[in-house]
Design a protein around this nucleic acid. Structure first.
Length: 192
DNA sequence: AGGAAGATCTACT
DNA sequence: GTAGATCTTCCTA
Protein backbone atom coordinates (compact mmCIF):
# COMPACT_ATOMS: atom_id res chain seq x y z
CA UNK A 1 0.00 0.00 0.00
CA UNK A 2 1.51 3.28 -1.10
CA UNK A 3 0.77 6.84 -0.11
CA UNK A 4 0.38 9.47 -2.79
CA UNK A 5 3.50 11.51 -3.59
CA UNK A 6 3.89 15.10 -2.49
CA UNK A 7 3.50 16.51 -5.98
CA UNK A 8 0.03 14.98 -6.16
CA UNK A 9 -1.06 17.65 -3.70
CA UNK A 10 0.95 20.49 -5.19
CA UNK A 11 -1.58 21.09 -7.94
CA UNK A 12 -4.81 22.95 -8.58
CA UNK A 13 -7.16 22.09 -5.66
CA UNK A 14 -9.94 21.28 -8.12
CA UNK A 15 -7.80 18.64 -9.80
CA UNK A 16 -6.76 17.22 -6.45
CA UNK A 17 -10.36 17.11 -5.21
CA UNK A 18 -11.39 15.04 -8.22
CA UNK A 19 -8.34 12.80 -8.10
CA UNK A 20 -8.81 12.02 -4.41
CA UNK A 21 -12.07 10.23 -5.18
CA UNK A 22 -11.53 6.49 -4.91
CA UNK A 23 -8.41 6.85 -2.75
CA UNK A 24 -8.28 5.37 0.74
CA UNK A 25 -8.12 7.28 4.01
CA UNK A 26 -6.38 5.24 6.70
CA UNK A 27 -6.48 6.01 10.43
CA UNK A 28 -4.00 4.22 12.66
CA UNK A 29 -5.18 3.70 16.24
CA UNK A 30 -3.30 1.94 19.02
CA UNK A 31 -4.73 -1.48 18.38
CA UNK A 32 -6.61 -1.08 15.18
CA UNK A 33 -6.67 0.27 11.67
CA UNK A 34 -9.67 2.14 10.32
CA UNK A 35 -10.02 2.81 6.63
CA UNK A 36 -12.47 4.16 4.12
CA UNK A 37 -12.74 5.02 0.46
CA UNK A 38 -13.11 8.69 -0.34
CA UNK A 39 -16.37 9.21 -2.25
CA UNK A 40 -17.06 12.93 -1.87
CA UNK A 41 -14.86 16.04 -1.74
CA UNK A 42 -15.03 19.81 -2.07
CA UNK A 43 -12.35 22.17 -3.35
CA UNK A 44 -11.53 25.43 -1.61
CA UNK A 45 -9.58 27.86 -3.72
CA UNK A 46 -7.86 31.19 -3.56
CA UNK A 47 -10.97 33.10 -4.62
CA UNK A 48 -12.76 31.91 -1.51
CA UNK A 49 -10.79 34.38 0.55
CA UNK A 50 -12.75 37.26 -0.93
CA UNK A 51 -16.16 35.83 -0.12
CA UNK A 52 -15.48 34.61 3.38
CA UNK A 53 -16.41 36.25 6.61
CA UNK A 54 -13.67 37.76 8.68
CA UNK A 55 -13.32 34.67 10.83
CA UNK A 56 -13.25 32.21 7.95
CA UNK A 57 -10.85 34.37 6.05
CA UNK A 58 -8.35 34.31 8.83
CA UNK A 59 -8.64 30.57 9.27
CA UNK A 60 -8.41 29.91 5.60
CA UNK A 61 -5.46 32.14 4.98
CA UNK A 62 -3.39 29.77 7.05
CA UNK A 63 -3.50 27.45 4.08
CA UNK A 64 -0.94 29.59 2.37
CA UNK A 65 1.66 28.83 4.98
CA UNK A 66 1.12 25.14 5.46
CA UNK A 67 2.68 22.67 3.10
CA UNK A 68 0.57 20.66 0.67
CA UNK A 69 -0.22 17.11 1.73
CA UNK A 70 -0.92 17.98 5.35
CA UNK A 71 -4.20 18.01 7.21
CA UNK A 72 -6.05 21.16 8.17
CA UNK A 73 -8.71 20.49 10.77
CA UNK A 74 -11.15 23.00 12.21
CA UNK A 75 -14.38 23.06 14.15
CA UNK A 76 -17.69 24.20 12.74
CA UNK A 77 -21.00 23.87 14.57
CA UNK A 78 -19.47 21.41 16.96
CA UNK A 79 -18.04 19.21 14.24
CA UNK A 80 -14.44 18.67 13.22
CA UNK A 81 -13.90 19.08 9.50
CA UNK A 82 -11.03 17.37 7.73
CA UNK A 83 -9.24 19.20 4.95
CA UNK A 84 -6.14 18.26 3.02
CA UNK A 85 -3.93 21.15 2.03
CA UNK A 86 -3.49 21.16 -1.74
CA UNK A 87 -2.25 23.95 -3.98
CA UNK A 88 0.60 24.84 -6.30
CA UNK A 89 3.50 26.52 -4.55
CA UNK A 90 2.75 30.13 -3.71
CA UNK A 91 -1.01 29.70 -3.99
CA UNK A 92 -3.77 28.92 -1.47
CA UNK A 93 -6.18 26.02 -1.43
CA UNK A 94 -7.38 22.81 0.09
CA UNK A 95 -9.75 19.90 -0.25
CA UNK A 96 -12.50 19.09 2.23
CA UNK A 97 -13.19 15.39 2.66
CA UNK A 98 -16.99 15.17 2.83
CA UNK A 99 -17.79 11.46 2.77
CA UNK A 100 -16.23 8.01 2.90
CA UNK A 101 -17.26 4.45 2.23
CA UNK A 102 -16.23 2.42 5.30
CA UNK A 103 -13.82 -0.45 4.61
CA UNK A 104 -12.01 -1.56 7.76
CA UNK A 105 -12.84 -1.17 11.45
CA UNK A 106 -16.56 -0.80 10.96
CA UNK A 107 -17.35 -2.14 14.44
CA UNK A 108 -15.25 0.59 16.02
CA UNK A 109 -16.80 3.25 13.82
CA UNK A 110 -20.27 2.14 14.82
CA UNK A 111 -19.25 2.56 18.45
CA UNK A 112 -17.63 5.94 17.88
CA UNK A 113 -20.74 7.19 16.14
CA UNK A 114 -23.24 5.38 18.33
CA UNK A 115 -25.40 4.36 15.39
CA UNK A 116 -26.43 1.06 13.85
CA UNK A 117 -26.67 1.82 10.15
CA UNK A 118 -23.45 1.56 8.15
CA UNK A 119 -24.76 4.19 5.79
CA UNK A 120 -24.93 6.66 8.63
CA UNK A 121 -21.28 6.26 9.63
CA UNK A 122 -19.25 8.45 7.33
CA UNK A 123 -21.67 10.13 4.91
CA UNK A 124 -20.91 13.67 6.02
CA UNK A 125 -17.86 15.76 6.91
CA UNK A 126 -18.61 15.90 10.62
CA UNK A 127 -19.66 12.27 10.75
CA UNK A 128 -16.53 10.78 9.27
CA UNK A 129 -14.25 12.64 11.65
CA UNK A 130 -16.23 11.25 14.58
CA UNK A 131 -16.17 7.72 13.18
CA UNK A 132 -12.42 7.96 12.59
CA UNK A 133 -11.71 9.65 15.92
CA UNK A 134 -10.22 12.67 14.17
CA UNK A 135 -9.82 15.83 16.24
CA UNK A 136 -7.66 18.93 16.36
CA UNK A 137 -4.88 16.69 17.65
CA UNK A 138 -4.41 15.41 14.13
CA UNK A 139 -4.13 18.89 12.67
CA UNK A 140 -1.05 19.36 10.49
CA UNK A 141 -0.54 15.63 10.03
CA UNK A 142 1.45 14.64 6.98
CA UNK A 143 -0.73 12.19 5.03
CA UNK A 144 2.22 11.25 2.86
CA UNK A 145 4.35 9.88 5.68
CA UNK A 146 3.31 6.27 6.20
CA UNK A 147 4.12 6.55 9.91
CA UNK A 148 1.46 9.20 10.47
CA UNK A 149 -1.70 8.38 12.36
CA UNK A 150 -3.62 9.46 9.30
CA UNK A 151 -2.55 8.74 5.74
CA UNK A 152 -4.07 8.57 2.26
CA UNK A 153 -3.22 5.58 0.12
CA UNK A 154 -3.16 5.35 -3.60
CA UNK A 155 -5.46 2.75 -5.13
CA UNK A 156 -5.49 1.27 -8.56
CA UNK A 157 -7.54 3.15 -11.09
CA UNK A 158 -11.23 2.40 -10.95
CA UNK A 159 -13.95 3.07 -13.39
CA UNK A 160 -16.54 5.45 -12.03
CA UNK A 161 -18.26 8.58 -13.09
CA UNK A 162 -17.57 11.81 -11.25
CA UNK A 163 -20.57 13.99 -10.47
CA UNK A 164 -20.34 17.62 -9.46
CA UNK A 165 -22.46 20.29 -7.80
CA UNK A 166 -22.21 23.49 -5.88
CA UNK A 167 -20.78 23.17 -2.42
CA UNK A 168 -23.06 22.43 0.46
CA UNK A 169 -23.89 24.92 3.18
CA UNK A 170 -21.65 27.64 1.79
CA UNK A 171 -23.39 30.95 2.33
CA UNK A 172 -22.04 32.71 -0.71
CA UNK A 173 -20.62 30.11 -3.02
CA UNK A 174 -18.52 30.80 -6.05
CA UNK A 175 -20.10 30.49 -9.49
CA UNK A 176 -18.29 27.29 -10.40
CA UNK A 177 -19.16 23.83 -9.09
CA UNK A 178 -16.54 22.73 -6.61
CA UNK A 179 -18.10 19.67 -5.02
CA UNK A 180 -17.27 16.29 -6.50
CA UNK A 181 -18.52 12.81 -5.76
CA UNK A 182 -18.61 9.28 -7.13
CA UNK A 183 -21.87 8.98 -9.00
CA UNK A 184 -24.31 6.46 -7.60
CA UNK A 185 -22.29 5.71 -4.48
CA UNK A 186 -24.53 5.09 -1.47
CA UNK A 187 -22.20 6.77 1.00
CA UNK A 188 -22.26 10.20 -0.57
CA UNK A 189 -23.77 12.70 1.88
CA UNK A 190 -27.49 13.04 1.39
CA UNK A 191 -28.16 16.56 0.21
CA UNK A 192 -27.34 17.23 -3.36
C1' DA B 1 -21.04 39.02 26.29
C1' DG B 2 -22.77 37.89 21.92
C1' DG B 3 -22.82 36.04 17.40
C1' DA B 4 -21.62 33.28 13.58
C1' DA B 5 -19.92 29.30 11.66
C1' DG B 6 -18.93 24.89 4.41
C1' DA B 7 -23.17 20.37 10.35
C1' DT B 8 -26.05 17.01 12.62
C1' DC B 9 -29.77 15.26 15.34
C1' DT B 10 -34.47 15.14 16.62
C1' DA B 11 -39.12 15.71 16.14
C1' DC B 12 -42.45 16.62 13.76
C1' DT B 13 -45.99 18.20 9.75
C1' DG C 1 -38.60 15.88 3.65
C1' DT C 2 -38.33 20.06 6.52
C1' DA C 3 -37.74 23.27 10.73
C1' DG C 4 -35.60 24.14 15.02
C1' DA C 5 -32.45 23.23 18.76
C1' DT C 6 -27.82 22.33 19.76
C1' DC C 7 -23.09 21.36 18.99
C1' DT C 8 -17.65 24.17 20.26
C1' DT C 9 -14.33 27.57 18.82
C1' DC C 10 -12.90 31.81 17.55
C1' DC C 11 -13.72 36.52 16.44
C1' DT C 12 -15.48 41.43 17.39
C1' DA C 13 -17.28 44.67 20.81
Amino acid sequence: MKTLPRFFYERDPVRVAKDLLGKTLVRRLDHEILSGRIVETEAYIENDIASKTQARRKLFSQLAFVGSGRTFIYMVHGNWLLNIIAHPKGSIGGVLIRALEPIKGIETMLQNRNVKDIHDLTNGPGKLTEAFAITKDLNDTDVINRNSELVINEEKRENFEIGSSHRIGVKRDLPQELRFFIKGNKFVSKSS
